[in-house]
């Protein structure tokens, strides 16, 4: 399992009601149900992923995250997850606010654009390609890259309180110079 997903499963309280935004084939929701008895729904826009969710017996809702989370009432989830989806969203600020409107807590993970290998590739004149950023510039679904520092700045600006942070590289925690040595960041946050 992807390292950030293991962390997410660990962070979700037993029996919590979960909403997974950009849930792919629903495997995280399946793990959450198996390991934490946490029932939930996934939101996904891609047909193929939606069909995979149905086949995996995961509740899935095919709606566009860009238009917000109008299907969901305020505070209707214990935990809203946005795993490696933040960088694909156009209306980032809206979605982060919406997450914390419908959920008491949000879990966000994203590839850290500040990792030294990205910086080096840019310094050498190329767009970065790596394990956590596996796309060429002309085929990437990502539209909003950010660094750990960028994300934390945005959280401060829009009143999101960071409760916990885990930075990873090659599946191992990074504590020294995280914005330089970490390639993946996972946050647990609440509204201020």
């Amino acid at each position: 399992m992807r390292a950030d997903l293991e962390t997410i499963v660990h962070w979700v309280p037993r029996g919590a009601r979960v909403l997974d935004l950009g849930c792919g084939d629903g495997s995280l929701l399946r793990s959450l149900w198996r390991e934490r008895e946490a029932p939930g729904y996934g939101v996904e826009i891609e047909d193929e992923a939606v069909l995979a969710c149905v086949a995996n017996d995961v509740n899935v809702l095919q709606v566009d995250l860009e238009s917000g989370l109008s299907l969901f009432a305020d505070g209707s989830f214990d935990c809203v997850i946005l795993s490696e989806t933040l960088q694909t969203i156009h209306r980032t600020e809206l979605l982060l606010r919406e997450m914390l409107r419908v959920g008491r807590e949000g879990i966000v993970s994203f590839p850290n654009f500040g990792h030294w290998s990205s910086r080096l590739q840019i310094a050498l004149g190329r767009m970065p390609v790596s394990d956590t950023l596996p796309y060429e510039w002309y085929e990437t679904p990502n539209v909003h890259h950010c660094t750990i520092t960028d994300f934390e700045y945005l959280c401060r600006r829009i009143g999101i309180r960071i409760r916990e942070r885990l930075v990873l590289h090659a599946n191992k925690p990074v504590t020294l110079l995280p914005n330089l040595l970490g390639s993946l960041a996972v946050y647990r946050c609440t509204a201020n």
């Binding site: 009601r17 939606v50 509740n59 109008s70």
Partner: peptide, 21 residues
């Protein structure tokens, strides 16, 4: 259809929703 889905979600019912192009 989304009206129906929203009402089911409000009631915490098991629901999946497909919006096919």
């Amino acid at each position: 259809s989304r009206d129906i889905v929203r009402a089911l979600l409000d009631n915490r019912r098991i629901v999946s929703y497909l919006e096919l192009d």
